[in-house]
Amino acid sequence: MPFTTLRSYAELMRVANVFTSVSNVWMGMILTTGYLPGWSAVGISLASALMYLAGMVLNDVFDHQIDAVERPGRPIPSGRVSLTSAKILGWGLLVAGLIAAGLVTFYVQSYLPIAMAICLSLAIIGYDAGLKQTWLGPFAMGMCRVFNVLLGMSLVGLPTEWRLPEIASLNLLPAFAIGLYIIGVTWFARDEAGEGKRRTLVMGSLTVLAAMVLLATMPWSDAPAVHGFRIDSTGWFILWFVVAGTILRRMVVAILQPTPRNMQRAVGNAILSLITIDAAISLGYADPYWACAVLALVAPAMQLSQMFKMT
């Protein structure tokens, strides 16, 4: 396959973004097991990555007529990738992700991984197939991330069977806070191709801030991790002040000067910052080297973001 064709498919899949999906499931695993559990972690990471890439491709498949007008340079409307090939790739990736989750389910003898994968796939299809064009779009996108984090958490209690008390004992705050964060980012990004409306940008930024506040309060919620909170409160609050500041700074710039360039830069930074957020959560609840493992995902994501647009 020629390099230009590979590049077109990589652009279609928005490959730089996939590392944020992996960081989500790694954080979920670290919170509920205290580490990345070997082959189970590989399978869950693969399932998450495949379904995320599927979502990116199917997004362009369902939007090909809109993109032909608003984003004619995208792979499908530009003719660099045929619509038929994109459909085969998108649905194929989604099925492959479900198969990967199914193999993990068989390996760990728990139905929870495949259950979360099915929920994630339905959320992806719902968003791509039409919800994104409605007021429910940001919420549907947020639920995709919620189920992605829960996919990582689905290894709770390894190697025991799926029992409801184990699921009920999970603190779901991190998953829903990540979902709220994505709702804010999606809301903020709704008009990134044109001149943004300040009210929408402000509401998106405030939603992101609310998610940061929720994550900062995690130590005072009910038993969110297998090993409990590991760093002092002062350091924890400073950590989240810095993380939130690096994200909101670009958003404020876009609010003050709502140009497509400023909004796209703010959205791209917010998406990439998901890895930092996941690493920060992991740092509070596990050995530091697991947080470093999550943070290491920033390097390939940043490198690829220089080659392919994240939004």
Rank of each mutant, 00 (worst) to 15 (best):
M218G: 03
L98I: 09
M27H: 02
G228I: 07
W162S: 13
N171M: 01
A47Q: 08
W187H: 10
L93S: 02
N171D: 14
M141P: 08
L297Q: 13
M27Y: 02
I247L: 12
F237Y: 15
P224L: 02
P2V: 00
D60F: 04
I275W: 10
G55P: 10
D60T: 07
A286N: 06
V149W: 02
G79M: 09
V242N: 04
H64D: 08
G179W: 06
S85F: 02
L46P: 05
V242E: 07
P72G: 15
G196L: 01
A54N: 06
A86K: 10
Q306M: 14
I271N: 01
F241E: 04
Y181T: 05
A301I: 08
A68C: 07
Q65S: 12
L164N: 01
W290N: 01
P37T: 07
L58W: 02
E166Q: 10
L209M: 13
P75H: 05
P165E: 14
P288Q: 05
N262V: 07
I167M: 03
G179V: 08
R74F: 05
I255H: 07
Q303D: 04
L94P: 05
Q109W: 12
V61M: 03
F188S: 03
K132I: 07
I76Q: 09
A96K: 06
L283F: 15
I30N: 03
G38V: 11
P219T: 09
P219Q: 02
F106C: 12
P138K: 01
M310I: 15
